[in-house]
């Protein structure tokens, strides 16, 4: 119970801070919409081929914007010394980590909620034509991204090069998330049999479960004493 209280306290702090400053979500949102627009130049407007790539474009816009936001969110924690202060608090350290991961998840989810409708209008595709299942894809994919992204952003802001390390460490590790989210989304965009999406969803769920456990086990050891 205390564990959940810690998580919710940290999330509340981050959300309140974000509501005041609006730095993270607004910059991420602009960047992700911009990515969606700029990527439209890689194919002829209205070509048939477009439906096979738009799912990938949407996910890459989330990944790039997410990396931007993770760096911003962790930098503001570290520069004020806030993160070290949090770690001194007499609470379970992994609760602090999951608090940060949940706030990052919320920020990325906000970006997705605004980007997806714009994306559907701009590319003239309806992701939800076959029901609400794509919501599960976005949920699982974003969760996995947030959990590993939060850990790696803590690592990355502690290096000499600051934010440069995050994409270099994160992108190869989240290949399974990118691949299965894009493949699952494509099934819905192209109107293939939704049953095919289930194995990708299982893979995403397995990835999320495995890395939740691993990060939970590892986090206590890696933060400074």
């Amino acid at each position: 119970m205390k564990y959940l209280n810690t998580i919710s306290a940290i999330v509340r702090k981050d959300v309140l801070h974000e509501l005041k400053s609006r730095e993270i979500v607004v910059s991420m949102l602009l960047f992700s919409v911009l990515t969606v627009v700029v990527f439209s130049f890689i194919f002829e407007p209205g070509s048939q081929f477009k439906n096979e790539v738009v799912g990938g474009i949407l996910w890459m816009s989330f990944v790039f914007a997410g990396i931007l936001g993770l760096n911003k969110s962790m930098m503001s924690e570290v520069t004020g010394g806030n993160f070290s202060a949090l770690l001194l608090a007499p609470v379970d350290r992994s609760a602090i980590f999951f608090g940060k991961a949940v706030s990052n998840f919320i920020f990325i989810a906000m970006v997705e909620i605004f980007t997806i409708p714009l994306f559907m209008v701009l590319y003239n595709v309806n992701i939800f034509a076959y029901g609400a299942m794509p919501v599960v894809i976005f949920f699982l994919g974003t969760y996995g991204f947030a959990i590993l992204g939060t850990l790696f952003s803590i690592i990355s802001v502690n290096t000499r090069t600051r934010e440069v390390m995050l994409p270099l460490l994160l992108l190869p590790i989240i290949v399974p998330i990118i691949l299965s989210s894009v493949q699952a989304l494509n099934i819905y965009i192209l109107g293939h049999d939704p049953a095919d999406a289930s194995k990708w969803l299982q893979l995403l769920a397995a990835f999320d479960a495995i890395f939740t456990v691993v990060v939970f086990a590892v986090f206590d050891f890696i933060v400074e004493d």
């Binding site: 690592i155 290096t159 590790i173 399974p176 495995i210 691993v214 990060v215 590892v218 050891f221 933060v223």
Partner: peptide
Amino acid sequence: FIEEADKRAKFAAAIGIIGFIDVPIVFFS
């Protein structure tokens, strides 16, 4: 890119563990 030996070792260990666990998942996907 990390100067402090203690931090370097701990963070690198995290990548060493997560990276290796990730490999079979990458392969199957």
